[in-house]
Amino acid sequence: MKADQTLDCTGTYCPIPIVKTAAKIKELKRGQVLEVLADDKGIKLDMPAWCRTTGHECLAIEEKDGEFRVYVKKTHD
């Protein structure tokens, strides 16, 4: 999946990936996609929950060798 920006959160646990995502998404324009790299399994449930609450869209979560690529679309400012 194509992303406009990438945020590397590998090597960190909750709450860092979510906190960093919340800060990073502000830099994107509406409609752009942020790719978040993480290796904390919690991201699988945390990011969809964060998206549900904030209203942004969780497009996909790809898992490969214990690494996750999460795609979040910014839906509003």
């Binding site: 909750c14 709450p15 979510i18 906190v19 995502t21 919340a22 800060a23 929950a49 964060w50 609450t53 904030t54």
Partner: peptide, 10 residues
């Protein structure tokens, strides 16, 4: 941890 996460969630 809960507080900062909640703040991240708006």
């Amino acid at each position: 941890i809960i507080a900062t996460t909640a703040a991240s969630m708006g």
